[in-house]
């Protein structure tokens, strides 16, 4: 594989944003995701390859490390910062069609709940894994999910909740989405929910961590 792409995937994995960033200490003074993405595109590397061979492998590695408790939320957020910096360079290529994302994921924290750290982590990880993400924010009811689905047919929906009082809203939102847009796939997550709850409310998947959502999307959208 191209050396720049290998370096780029390392920058994502270790959260090296740009040359000026002192983090991580072992990469201090080196080019980061910002410079390397620009350099890769300037050297004529296909934007699709920059995404799938450079950025995505790094994001997958950090996602797996997070699942295995080898890294923690701050490190994932640094990786996400590096990823979003790189994505700024790729954005024009997504718009022109020179690079394609694997599908669309609509995510929101359910009605009544304002917690968004877990939702943001999933959002960043999914985007870094090659999907277009529509983040509806917090306190989101079924009407907003359905409107977003109408704008993005075939998208998968992610519902997040942190409270036992708001997880119950997942049931109504899931039903209303499925009634309005039959066939829509819904994945749920958050501290109080589990596989049994997922089955009970008629959602399609429960994930205990962000990488689980990526794996579900890869099975359903990218296969």
């Amino acid at each position: 594989m191209n050396e720049i792409l290998t370096q780029l995937s390392d920058c994502i994995e270790f959260g090296k944003i740009n040359m000026a960033s002192p983090y991580p200490p072992q990469m201090k003074g080196q080019e980061g995701a910002d410079e390397l993405t620009a350099k890769a595109l300037a050297e004529g590397i296909n934007p699709q390859d920059v995404l799938t061979l450079g950025l995505m492998p790094g994001m997958e590695r950090i996602g797996l490390k997070f699942r295995e408790n080898k890294v923690f939320v701050p490190q994932v957020l640094m990786s996400a910062k590096a990823m979003s910096t790189a994505m700024l360079h790729l954005k024009p290529h997504f718009l022109s069609g020179a690079a394609k994302q694997k599908g669309t994921f609509i995510i929101g924290t359910v009605l009544g709940d304002l917690h968004d750290i877990g939702k943001n982590l999933v959002s960043m990880m999914v985007e870094g894994s090659g999907y277009k993400v529509i983040d509806l924010g917090t306190d989101v009811g079924s009407d907003k999910f359905i409107a977003a689905l109408k704008d993005h047919p075939g998208a998968v929906v992610g519902l997040s909740a942190l409270l036992t009082t708001t997880m119950v809203n997942m049931q109504a939102i899931t039903k209303e989405i499925k009634d309005a847009m039959p066939g829509t796939l819904i994945t749920i997550g958050g501290a109080p929910v589990n596989e049994d709850f997922c089955n009970k409310i008629g959602a399609d998947s429960y994930s205990a961590d962000p990488q689980g959502v990526v794996e579900f999307l890869n099975r359903k959208l990218a296969s």
Binding site: L111, G112, L114, L163, T165, T166
Partner: peptide
């Protein structure tokens, strides 16, 4: 409190 008992 919000309706869902979340403190603000």
């Amino acid at each position: 409190l919000t309706q869902s008992a979340l403190m603000q």
